[in-house]
């Protein structure tokens, strides 16, 4: 079923209610919104939840950056990276780091839709493309 403009508006409102003072998505607030929707479901419950999910998915990368590295990151490294990202992007980002052994060495950082990468995996891929 096509999402109506009204559903989109409501989903955007729900997203704004899910944010804390610093503009980050607050997990407790999200849970509370989902609980209240479950208790008193609107007529377009499923469509609204889907739209809420996609709004949140679109919003998250603007306040949270994803860092992929081959090995587990230490707390200090994470702080340094957060500071560097905030300095370059000019806003209050949090870092969601994860392990990706396929990178072999290096890193892959996603800020919004932008991906910064310097890894062995990427260099091998570039080599493959240039030779094919």
């Amino acid at each position: 079923m096509a999402t109506t403009t009204k559903t989109k508006k409501v989903a955007k409102k729900l997203l704004s209610l899910s944010l804390d003072e610093e503009g980050r998505v607050d997990e407790a607030k999200v849970r509370s919104i989902l609980d209240s929707l479950r208790e008193d479901p609107p007529s377009n419950h499923r469509a609204l939840l889907r739209e809420y999910q996609s709004e949140t998915r679109r919003y998250l990368p603007t306040v949270q950056c994803g860092l992929e590295i081959p090995e587990a990151v230490q707390g200090e490294v994470s702080q340094i990276l957060t500071g560097k990202v905030n300095a370059s992007q000019g806003s209050n980002f949090s870092i969601d780091s994860s392990q990706n052994p396929s990178l072999i060495a290096g890193y892959k950082l996603r800020v919004g839709d932008d991906v910064y990468e310097d890894s062995i995996d990427q260099r091998l891929e570039n080599l493959r493309k240039s030779l094919s």
Partner: peptide, 8 residues
């Protein structure tokens, strides 16, 4: 060998 930036 520079880091690359792409939009995804």
């Amino acid at each position: 060998t520079d880091p690359t930036k792409t939009n995804v």
